[in-house]
């Protein structure tokens, strides 16, 4: 029974995963080639499934990202995934098979919506801060202590002439 409940949880999650992520993943094939760490590079399909399975070698990574060369768990697991894909099993079926064998703990959830929402929320918050900053400093304030000084003020016109003369020398 534990198996079925784990399975149904997965079905729900993989539903939006399949709907949302797959086409984008396919689009960004080239980009997805990143994040590969070990020298052996499994195919992208194997990788995609491997990302959803926790490696059991003690590294706390996924099967796809386990950085251990000749890893006792992730290497055969990757091969097994590839074989299962070769006979036409879907991602979900493969993951289910692993869950049946190793228990629900092996399933790694895909990024939750918080992963997406928070960075954009941060940008939005930043925009608000910028808006606030512009509003606050846009308001003309009298210059500190001396009040506004008109350049025509006789006491300052002396400066003005000096400034003009200095500026003529600038280059």
């Amino acid at each position: 029974m534990a198996g079925t409940s784990a399975r149904s949880t997965f079905m729900r999650r993989s539903g939006w995963f399949a709907k949302l992520e797959m086409p984008v993943l396919a689009l960004l094939l080239a980009l997805a080639a990143l994040a590969q760490t070990a020298a052996e590079k499994p195919s992208l399909d194997t990788r995609r499934v491997g990302m959803r399975l926790a490696c059991q070698c003690g590294c706390k990574d996924s099967v796809a990202t386990c950085s251990m060369l000749e890893c006792g768990f992730s290497k055969p697991a990757k091969e097994r995934i590839a074989r299962m894909q070769a006979v036409g099993m879907s991602d979900q079926q493969i993951i289910d098979a692993f869950v049946r064998e190793y228990g629900p703990g092996i399933y790694l959830a895909p990024p939750s919506s918080a992963g997406w929402v928070v960075p954009y929320a941060a940008v939005a918050a930043g925009l608000l801060v910028v808006w606030w900053f512009i509003r606050k400093y846009r308001r003309p304030r009298p210059l500190p202590e001396l009040g506004t000084i008109e350049i025509d003020d006789p006491a300052l016109s002396k400066y003005k002439d000096q400034i003009e003369k200095d500026l003529a020398d600038l280059e």
């Binding site: 202590e145 001396l146 008109e150 350049i151 003020d153 006491a155 300052l156 400066y159 003005k160 400034i163």
Partner: peptide
């Protein structure tokens, strides 16, 4: 330019 001159005058006065 006017702004900058005004600021300059303020600093000189300070």
């Amino acid at each position: 330019k006017k702004d900058l001159q005004k600021e300059l005058a303020t600093v000189l006065a300070e």
